[in-house]
Write a protein that binds this DNA or RNA. Structure first.
Lengths: 350, 350
DNA sequence: TTGTAGGCGTTATCAG
DNA sequence: CTGATAACGCCTACAA
């Protein structure tokens, strides 16, 4: 009826608790005879260690370092910060402590500097948002050299070989954007718009574009024409004019698919210009997008739930470090569709 | 630096651990003098009990009884069962055990019979799906008389006065359905279709309908005509003919909004009839709906995430019983939109 | 190589 | 009413 304890196993195998412990945890220093006796019992019964007792007893703390971009440079990174706080509240009970290190993706050496700090803090595990490919690869290699497990979120880099990756299927999200736009009966020109400071995320954006184009191609129609447009700096003073230029170049534009979280930039332009006839689909439920969803200048948002991503990252590292559980190598989160009428239901929930 | 323990408080207040324990847990039998000394210390410091140690020590188990409809009578109830299993896996660590009692909503006295069994099992808490209003009210009253906290999910009944309710905003989901349908540019007749065995869920369905109609009304257009249609028994042999009759009565039907999880019934009809020009929106990501979403006979599903509902129900009861935490009175979960291109992302995830 | 004692923070019990 | 003490199951350290 009750759970089997180490003590029970010891009695059954006619050895001491210490020996059983050594066998279970492979600490060596056990004679063949004793090992056999214990394993025989272990094979017959299903021993499930009491995690409560384990954490209470060891009273060990685990330091997890998170390395990610600074919120100040992109509001996109606000959500993961909240996910981390939530995770610390939940797993603090098990001795898990989260320390966050922010880098500025715009600034040279910022990543390297913070990466150095992370390593100096000698963490038991690392959660990483590897948006700078080369730098992240070098950092991950150093972690591996120091036997520190690395979990990645948001950006998937095969070569980085993390213990686990948590993110979303970008290609599929591009397809979803196409479904959302075409189901509104668009015809004419559809613009795929990349708004990003640097080409750092280019792989991200390219995958989304590929998914989008694949879907349109499968529709096998000539009613729509898909073009790609890039605007590098949304912080640029001439941003409005650049958008102007875009719409002048494609006067029959019916829909715009913004591949980053910056749909609000376009929505703001459309509102000022009084253009309500353009379908706009973008990414991520961030503050700046909300009022435009409410006013229908953004018709749909694909929400990647980055908060959940970082939370799961810590959760996986906890499983790994504290509970010695197996964790999945890759986990893709659901692609949430947010429109005006289900916006509030997402905001209220957390 | 380290957490303050009962032992520390005892030293500071110059009393024994036992006395501190009695004060904190209000077990009485403490002199005014001792009480004052302990409270003085308690006011100054922020004592956070160690839940790990608490659960280990008390080694108490909590029995939670769940009373809900049987899966065999409606596949809708499959998901909550999985949510319960998940919850038991997660909270079993804290001594929580879940026992599920199924009733047959079609059968007289089935609810009463199972309710009696629940009470006989003397649970520490009850999770209830109160789809039968009067019976649920009577049962909840009995629980209250026995000091058993009741948490409800899926159906909200104000008068039942549960400790907490977990569900969704039905009215808003109706509005969302209207947004999904109208954004596809429908005109002509839109049918709101209630497919349900009994009028038991009528309040549910009515709220959805109201939300839907409200949204359409706000559009202030004459291009669309909304009608309500009811089909009582999807298991009826003449079901196909009844649907036939419906479409004959409204030959210019452009869209159908099924207010239950039975959109697959209509989708199956449409596929057989070869009608691909009708927009179909329904509820719940259940097995039967999946193939029709893939083949686009169902254009969108509003997913209520019932699995999450039951999981949260147990989670709240755990907070209440084990951790003595405050729990919210009402929690509405997000309204998920599922279309063909994000279907898989929801299926893979769990 | 093996067994045992002490402790993690809390709760429950039982003498004083 | 109060204080000491033995569990809860596991881990670490130390002694045999």
């Amino acid at each position: 009826m009750k759970n089997i304890r180490i003590k029970d196993i010891a009695q059954m195998a006619k050895v001491s608790m210490g020996t059983v412990d050594r066998v279970i945890h492979k600490r060596g220093k056990v004679s063949e005879a004793a090992y056999g006796k214990v394993m025989k019992v272990l094979d017959q019964i299903d021993y499930k260690p009491n995690l409560i007792a384990k954490t209470l007893s060891s009273s060990k703390t685990y330091q997890i370092a998170t390395l990610m971009p600074d919120v100040r440079h992109d509001p996109f990174w606000q959500e993961p910060v909240e996910g981390l706080a939530k995770a610390e509240r939940e797993f603090g009970q098990f001795g898990v402590q989260v320390h966050t290190f922010f880098f500025n993706p715009m600034e040279d050496d910022s990543f390297e500097k913070m990466a150095r700090e992370v390593l100096q803090s000698e963490p038991d595990g690392v959660l990483l948002a590897p948006i700078l490919r080369d730098e992240a690869l070098a950092f991950a290699a150093q972690c591996q050299a120091n036997n520190i497990p690395v979990v990645c979120f948001n950006t998937f880099i095969e070569a980085l070989q993390p213990v686990s990756f948590i993110g979303q299927d970008l290609h599929q999200s591009g397809r979803l954007a196409a479904e959302l736009i075409t189901s509104r009966g668009s015809c004419g020109t559809i613009i795929i718009l990349h708004i990003a400071e640097k080409a750092q995320n280019s792989v991200h954006l390219y995958e989304k574009e590929q998914g989008f184009r694949e879907f349109i191609k499968e529709m096998n129609t000539t009613a729509m024409q898909v073009v790609t447009y890039e605007i590098e700096s949304p912080l640029h003073p001439d941003f409005g004019e650049m958008v102007d230029g875009m719409f002048q170049q494609f006067p029959d534009t019916q829909a715009v698919f913004v591949t980053t979280s910056r749909a609000y930039n376009i929505a703001g332009y459309l509102e000022k210009a009084g253009r309500t006839n353009i379908t706009l689909v973008g990414y991520d439920l961030i503050e700046a997008n909300i009022p435009f969803i409410e006013r229908k200048y953004i018709n749909a948002i694909i929400h990647q739930n980055v908060q959940q991503q970082s939370f799961l990252g810590i959760s996986y590292l906890t499983d790994l470090l504290v509970f010695k559980k197996e964790i999945p190598y890759r986990r893709n989160l659901p692609l949430h569709i947010i429109m005006r009428e289900n916006l509030n239901s997402y905001l209220q929930d957390h």
